[in-house]
Design a protein around this nucleic acid. Structure first.
Length: 679
RNA sequence: GCGCCUGUAGCUCAGGGGAUAGAGCGUUGGGUUGCGGACCCAAAGGCCGCAGGUUCGAUUCCUGCCAGGCGUACCA
């Protein structure tokens, strides 16, 4: 660059442009140097198969045929083991899936399970001694809420079929949530209107006048009207308990509805204003939300405070282990568990250990006492906490404070996780514990790990939280209250049905049983690939239409490449063993095609991909690998005829095809995806 | 405030100190007297968020900004 400056060529250029110019000049020089080096090397007779200069690089080639023969022999000889590493002594436990009983198994759990299953297989392949652990949330407020709702509104209504009960229970939970949060939802919606619907705010005065005139005009009513006016006009949150007259919202709601309908009928163009954020909703969406809340308004609004009291009583029944309640819990818990076992079976998730929250409460309380006795924990604001930063002598807020027991003595998630992790270390001799859990809990896990370190567990330093981002929908965040949670069963049904159509269309000649199996493998494979072919720390937007499309960068593309490879081998009538035996003497017949070289390179990369995926805890590495391998096989397949070519090329290409199929199978296996031989 | 994550083609995403930054979807135009067309080829589309720094070389590493998301003591 200095030379260019001296020559005055940088005159009037920005710094960035100057750098670009300099880089271009350097490249020109490098290209010519590379050519000289390549020519000199080739002339020198160094034994390379080929030496060439390309874009400033000197590429040397070895005897591809000999290397190919060795690689293919290795792959075919090792078979299903190809790609795996030497056994390692380290004991690893991966905790994943963690669904809650009495709740639905949804797409979020699906991402977790797919990640967990794949990571487990990858770590096993890399040589670790791995145990898969599940941790079922079978107690807690969600159970209490669900069972309250069941006893109060649905007792005896459960479906007769055993396999339908788990799902039904999840719906009861969703309803309990909707009921108990009904007032909250209503006032939050009013806040939303007052912050992003200027037309609504402008009309609030008139609406409340209308409410006032149409009412009994009590003192309470007057206060409520004034309260609502002040809050909406000032875009302040409304607290439902501040309303004196329990009937005021019931009378107000239809008036709100009239206003929102009017806004839909007479839309006003959106005018951006300073300091006013853009609306997140359209008038139609707001009316729809109003409508959803309007339906149960009269029946639910007045009841919510009483319901919340009932839930508290139900919680007390759990706390004192009321026998009737425990019996109900035991029975309903099994409904969910049966459902989970079925789902894990479908997903190919196998667990060596099943932990349950209900089993670690007591031990958790003992640990809390111990931590208090040792001075690691202290009672602050009435509850036991670990002030981690203080204990570590950190001035900046880093790990903050971890509460480890509620002030009423009931257990927290942390209470149980401390006990559970201790068990992993003490009973299972785990050297490295991995948690596959939502990324939003990462601070929490750092706190638990540090607390256990303070408690004396050195293994806690090796503990790893594999966080992953949430699954969203094209229309926004998943919310159980909005009722837009895509339940696993529904998604699976839709994807399997679509896969069946496609199999029927593409391969009508298949036997019916084979069709069903292929459709299943393609469907589940696509679902899994969609979950794995995206980095953990990226939000997955789950689009059902996209999941139903089996084109392009998706599992069927890879599965199809495998099926085609199998088909060629089938035509040839050669077994892998026979090809393996011939591998030593393989001869591609002269110079290898670029597609053959590319494919060989991809086949050979599996062991490295496994190691990388294991080191980084990233199934994505394998997802990418397997797609690249399939793409290269397609390139090869289109460029290099296998069966029609003459010997010895034919056998060599067949062996390469067999090795590719093996690598594809092994790679897909690491993702937990099936590799059908025909589809 | 503090901490973590994200920003790459119209969209969804890979990649990564070194060659002309890659896929899929979508758009346009092609390919079957070949081992199954769930495939392939071509075209078009990029200040790799912005600005500095380190380096022979940065889209990649470091720092600072900007934008979005998430977390931050009795939810799980």
């Amino acid at each position: 660059m200095a030379d260019l400056a001296a020559a005055g060529e940088l005159e009037g250029l920005s710094r960035k442009e100057a750098k670009r110019l300099a880089a271009d000049r350097v490249r020109e020089r490098v290209v010519s140097l590379a050519e000289e080096v390549a020519a000199a090397t080739a002339a020198g007779g160094h034994g390379f198969a080929r030496v060439e200069a390309a874009n400033g690089y000197v590429n040397v080639s070895f005897d591809a045929n000999a290397m190919a023969a060795r690689l293919i022999g290795e792959v075919l000889g090792q078979g299903a083991v190809y790609g795996t590493g030497a056994p390692l002594a380290e004991q690893v436990m991966i905790e994943h899936s963690q669904p809650n009983t009495h709740k639905a198994f949804h797409v979020g759990h699906l991402r977790n399970s797919c990640l967990g299953v794949s990571l487990s297989r990858i770590l096993r392949a890399a040589g670790y001694a791995v145990r898969d652990a599940n941790y079922i949330g079978d107690i807690g407020m969600h159970v209490v809420k669900c069972l309250w709702c069941y006893e109060r509104f649905h007792k005896g209504q459960e479906p007769a079929a055993a396999e339908a009960k788990g799902r039904w229970l999840g719906e009861v939970y969703a309803e309990s949530d909707a009921r108990l949060n009904f007032r909250k939802d209503v006032v939050e919606f009013l806040l939303l209107l007052s912050t992003e619907d200027p037309t609504f705010v402008a009309a609030i005065d008139r609406m409340l006048k209308y409410l006032w005139r149409g009412s009994s005009q009590s003192e309470e009513m007057g206060q409520d009207v004034a309260y609502l006016l002040g809050r909406v006009a000032g875009a302040q949150p409304i607290k439902d308990e501040m309303l004196r007259d329990p009937g005021v919202m019931l009378k107000f709601w239809p008036i709100v509805g009239d206003q929102l309908r009017d806004e839909v009928a007479n839309p006003k163009p959106y005018v951006p204003q300073d300091g006013v954020p853009e609306p997140t909703t359209t008038p139609e969406e707001r009316l729809a939300t109003w409508q959803r809340l309007a339906e149960p308004m009269d029946a639910w609004w007045p009841e919510v405070p009483a319901w919340r009291e009932e839930v508290k009583e139900t919680f007390a029944r759990w706390e004192r282990q009321d026998p009737a309640f425990v019996a109900l819990w035991t029975e309903t818990r099994e409904w969910s568990l049966a459902d989970f076992r079925r789902i894990f079976d479908e997903l190919g998730a196998e667990f060596d250990v099943w932990f349950f929250e209900s089993e670690v409460e007591d031990e958790g309380r003992r640990i809390v006492q111990d931590l208090l006795a040792k001075g690691i924990a202290e009672v602050s604001d009435g509850l036991p906490v670990v002030k981690i930063d203080e204990k570590l002598g950190l001035a900046e807020p880093t790990y903050r404070t971890l509460p480890i027991l509620r002030s009423d003595g009931s257990t927290l998630y942390a209470t149980k996780d401390l006990a559970l992790t201790k068990r992993k270390f003490d009973e299972y001799g785990v050297d490295r514990a991995i948690w596959v859990v939502d990324v939003r809990q990462s601070l929490y896990f750092q706190q638990v790990f540090k607390t256990l370190e303070l408690y004396g567990f050195e293994q806690a330093a090796q503990a790893h939280h594999l966080g992953y981002e949430m699954v969203r929908l094209p229309e926004g965040v998943i919310s159980s209250r909005k009722g837009n949670v895509p339940v696993y069963d529904d998604i699976r049904d839709a994807v399997v049905a679509r896969a069946q159509e496609i199999v029927e269309e593409k391969n009508a000649g298949l036997a019916p049983a084979a069709k069903a199996e292929v459709a299943w493998q393609v469907a589940i494979g696509s679902l899994k690939y969609a979950m794995l072919a995206r980095d953990n720390n990226k939000v997955v937007t789950f689009d059902l239409d996209e999941a139903l499309s089996f084109d392009g960068h998706a599992a069927p593309y890879i599965q199809y490449a495998h099926a085609r490879a199998c088909r060629i081998l089938e035509h040839a009538g050669l077994e892998a063993e026979g090809l393996a035996a011939a591998a030593g003497g393989l001869d591609f017949g002269g110079e290898l095609a670029a597609e053959e070289l590319g494919l060989l390179q991809a086949v050979s990369a599996l062991p490295e991909a496994v190691q990388q995926a294991a080191a980084e805890y990233r199934p994505l590495v394998i997802a990418n690998y397997v797609f690249d391998l399939a793409r290269r096989f397609n390139d090869f397949y289109h460029a290099c005829p296998v069966l029609p070519s003459a010997e010895p090329t034919r056998t060599a290409r067949l062996a390469l095809t067999a090795a590719t199929a093996q690598a594809l199978r092994n790679g897909l296996g690491l993702l937990g995806i099936a590799a059908p031989a025909a589809m």
